[in-house]
Design a protein around this nucleic acid. Structure first.
Lengths: 242, 242
DNA sequence: GACATTTAAAAGTCTGACATTTAGAGCCTA
DNA sequence: TAGGCTCTAAATGTCAGACTTTTAAATGTC
């Protein structure tokens, strides 16, 4: 673990990178304790605050965790699926909100990926996954549900569908695509008729998943995508006309 | 932007979260300048090093950038696709390397997602995307290519395929799935015969993309997945037998 | 008006100190 | 000997203040 004295980059950046490289290369393994801040500042010939800034950078990426007290210190963190999932969702959400990604582009990506899960989910989903999907469909039919709650239920439905594939890597990858769409969906208002169409498609998809027909589920998702895009287009057109 | 004085969490964590919330909620917009470190330390009633640690946490997530000098400071950063892409790749790579994800699970996720891109890519790819795919296939046929270089070319081929869909959100989401597999693939050694089979499938996929046949491309990817998994299973079995 | 100089603001870094947390050693008692 | 208590030391968390470096803008000069 060394830094280049000639580099013009901030010291804390260089140090963070050096430690990160050591973790990625396997030089530092999971749960291994890093040298103390004092030792690191001695090693890199910088002050303790500089070392601390570097460590905070790594902590922000869940690469390390710190513990206070005797025999405390910084430890290489095992990146959990939960942590990665959360990071993925915030990153995707910000990416969409800051880059003027069109509704259609995001929607297309989301449903394309979701259709990839459909055959696997139809084959492997547990009774629990299916029950969650049915429960969310029921909730979506309740009168008095706000648009935001309707969208949240929509996300829960699709998450159950994706999780049904029982592939944690797939669930992680899809997290961003599905959840990051929620703010965009929240811009759409749903009439009672719209909701009926959507929950109808949800039922069709759930039926297909139940009978193990992956192709039918994918087809249902395709129709749902078209419906969603049409709905959004109408809303945006109406808004532009005003 | 406020912090809870009763919270037991580290101050720099709380402050980072407060600023992050302000960014996500839109209270702080892209390219807006945050108050100076001195002003922030005054506002939150903490010392400047503590504020700095908070800012470094945000910088590590590409949420802000800093500039030195007069009229410098911390600015809300527009999260670019490149930044998000890079984050996505490192996170996915670490996730796979630290969690004993089986080769099959990762492989299944990757190809499932990639198949989702195939129809779109077949429809929209530019001549450039296709040319890149062909070039990588050619490279893969060159004798004397190391296994690592072969894998890198494989990634480049698949990236061109994914980018062919011309959906930046899709490309971003796939980045992790495709590139994070590379370290796993590097554990496999390829015989000349293996390479011939793989490049043959690559050619089939490229042909399908060229003629605009998305289904054929997806079928090719399915075969490639099976071939890859069989190859890996053989390698692991041989290794276990020793 | 164009160019050089000065100035001031801001982040980057350092030193040294104190506060807080916590595991473990050592001790004491039942 | 087992259990609990206290003390200690190590480590992170926080603070205050100073100095360095960078950089844009104001100022001055020709």
């Amino acid at each position: 673990m060394k830094i280049d004295p000639k580099s013009s980059a901030d010291l804390s950046v260089q140090i963070a990178q050096a430690i990160k490289d050591a973790i990625i290369s396997g030089e530092l393994i999971v749960d291994e304790r890093l040298p103390s801040e004092a030792e690191l500042s001695d090693h890199f010939q910088v002050s303790r605050p500089t070392v601390r800034e570097a460590l905070k950078r790594l902590a922000a990426q869940s690469l390390i965790r710190t513990q206070r007290g005797a025999s405390g210190g910084a430890f290489v963190n095992r990146l959990s699926f939960e942590d990665a999932y959360a990071q993925q969702v915030t990153t995707s959400t910000l990416l969409l909100s800051m880059n003027e990604v069109s509704f259609d582009t995001a929607c297309e990506a989301r449903y394309a990926l979701e259709r990839a899960c459909a055959p696997l989910s139809a084959e492997r989903r547990s009774a629990d996954h299916l029950a969650t999907m049915r429960a969310e469909i029921f909730r979506q039919g309740q009168p008095g549900l706000t648009d935001v709650a309707f969208c949240a239920s929509d996300v829960a439905f699709h998450r159950a569908l994706v999780d049904g594939a029982r592939n944690p890597v797939l669930s992680y990858q899809l997290a961003g695509a599905v959840e990051a769409m929620q703010p965009l969906m929240n811009m759409v208002t749903f009439t009672a008729r719209d909701r009926a169409v959507i929950t109808g498609l949800h039922s069709r998809i759930a039926d297909a998943i139940e009978t193990g027909d992956g192709n039918a589920a994918a087809a249902g998702l395709k129709d749902l995508e078209n419906e969603t895009r049409k709905l959004a287009a109408d809303v945006f057109a109406a808004r532009a006309a005003k």
